[in-house]
Nucleic acid binder design. Structure first.
Lengths: 331, 331
DNA sequence: GGGCTTCCTGAAAACCTTTTCGGGAATGAC
DNA sequence: GTCATTCCCGAAAAGGTTTTCAGGAAGCCC
């Protein structure tokens, strides 16, 4: 059995109320008793039972992170950011992954709700109705990379559209005209935003957009690239939905005997570590993943503490184009 | 306020005991009442308060993971494995990172202990005394990559020594004689094991081992490689403590105008994703990180359930040498 | 029909802590 | 010396749930 406040009280020869008062400094206690309580508490290594605190409606000290999944370099960076902020705020992180099905999502939220003081939710495929029902859960919630309209909650996003717009513009300035977009999952909000940025850049240059269905995986990128390149009018550049997709595309192009960037330029999104170390290194958009995680947790913590930080904020974090070897001017 | 068992009882017109009995199937309840309870419970969307359960000494459904840190590809894979097993066992994952200081470590363990049913601890730098005191905490514990002798607990490790032994042997068979080892953190058990495997292979070939202090980071690998290569008898091959270290070494060698593998062969350890995608791709040892995480959680869950799975097991998981481009026979 | 068993169900205790309430002692004012 | 005030501190309630205990009703046997 573990040590309870009663053990401390017995050893110090006082009541449990007095122990609680000393340890929380909630009201004055005569000096001799206070000393005895402190001595007993330290000798026994007492720590309050978190379950009892939580039952009393006190803070649990936890932040919950609900992520679509957890492997891959993107998430490893994100987790690093979440963890760092949690550490510095003396909170602990409860990570849970939701495997897309909406009812499972609700179940996990309910289970998590009581265990933590607040939730960081990343669910790009979440729609507004689902997000709204989520918010009825009592714990404060911050959304990451989630594009639900009309939701009264803090939301932190990258400038997805701005990123692909800038990348596509870069290709256009390099003389490319037939630029295709290998799209991500159709239901994901960030994916839709990236598609929008691409289309806007193409439109404003008077070029015809051309979209192929792909996804956020290497396999999907490879398949899409093969389909594009074997079509009657193959593109000279491919804007991929993310880096994984771009890396898959490059692999497929090379297998077809094409050179990147000589024959085809390819760009990605996210700037995962592999983007810099692959050959050719990948022109992409650097997103401040780590920052995103950190800021989200800090904002959440502020809400939890009940600080007066105004109405919910919708933050769009700037992204940065990184030019590397996978793009070249059209000769 | 959230819905309690009392709300369900009121709506169903029974006592809270009856509600508990129906929902847990702990003893028979007459059919009409049972139906009413189930109806009420579903209509209200009732879910038991985890804090109350935990207070009663019931399971919390959580698995705690205590890791040295959380970013990097290695940990992302590990987390993926932990998460996958936790998901399939209907448990949730509480992740906490311990930033090495021993007292902080103890603090986190204490805080985590009551919130979860068991702990997966990865602490390569943990010594036996610390591990033993950790085990006095009541929750079942499984150690990962931790080398504490004489500890009565489940431990899952890779065959670290076997891995470097095999890699070093590979280099020796390729005609290398001057093979140096860029060592990892001196206090980490896995690091010591890798050093041991290297030394054993060198000894049994009658070669002189040569060790340079490095670490598990690129920077450390680069520094060590520079020092080695500028010495009077530079090695023709470097065995690095892990992949990050190897990648750093390769970078430094190239900056010095040397070709890998033509002038110097380099090998790593872990087979992180970047190892396959870098140029030259890295000869290394593939460790079943994901499996390790999965198995650890499964073993922990079995202990928690109190299944009769015999005494603590010390599992050494086999590793696999992956030959790629960063090694070549000596001409 | 009376006594005994069986079955079901409600009351209450237990888990651990914080906080409110009330009482007792000490101190100060007159 | 008496009364009022202040200061401490212990008892008890509350929070949500499971489980034990005990009691009531129904069924069975003779």
């Amino acid at each position: 059995m573990s040590i309870t406040i009663r053990d401390v009280a017995r050893r110090a020869g006082v009541s449990i109320s007095t122990v609680s008062r000393v340890l929380n400094g909630s009201s004055p206690v005569r000096e001799d008793k206070r000393d005895r309580v402190i001595e007993a508490s330290e000798a026994l290594g007492y720590a309050p039972n978190p379950a009892a605190l939580s039952l009393l409606g006190k803070r649990t000290g936890g932040v919950g992170a609900l992520l679509p999944f957890v492997s891959g370099e993107f998430f490893s960076e994100l987790l690093g950011g979440l963890d760092q902020a949690a550490q510095s705020l003396e909170r602990f992180l409860v990570v849970s992954t939701s495997h897309r099905k909406p009812d499972e999502f609700a179940r996990i939220v309910r289970a998590l709700d009581k265990r933590v003081d607040g939730l960081v939710v990343m669910a790009p495929e979440l729609d507004s109705a689902a997000a709204a029902s989520l918010l009825r859960a009592s714990a404060p919630t911050v959304f990451l990379n989630t594009f639900a309209e009309g939701i009264e909650a803090d939301m932190f996003n990258f400038d997805n559209a701005g990123g692909t717009r800038a990348l596509t513009g870069h290709l256009i300035r390099h003389g490319h005209r037939r630029i295709a977009f290998a799209a991500g999952p159709p239901l994901a909000g960030d994916s839709q935003e990236r598609a929008r940025g691409y289309r806007e850049a193409m439109d404003s240059a008077g070029l015809q957009p051309r979209q192929a269905d792909a996804g956020y995986t290497r396999q999907a990128g490879a398949d899409a690239a093969r389909a594009l390149i074997r079509s009657t009018t193959p593109p000279t550049a491919i804007v991929a939905a993310n880096d994984e997709c771009a890396l898959g595309a490059i692999l497929a192009l090379r297998e077809d005997g094409l050179s990147v960037p000589h024959d085809v330029s390819v760009v990605g999104f996210d700037d995962i570590p592999a983007a810099a170390h692959t050959t050719p290194s990948l022109t992409t958009v650097r997103v401040p993943i780590r920052d995103l995680g950190e800021q989200a947790v800090r904002q959440l913590a502020a809400r939890i503490e009940g600080e007066d930080i105004g109405p919910p904020r919708h933050v769009v974090m700037p992204v940065e184009v990184v030019i590397r070897e996978s793009t070249a001017p059209l000769p």
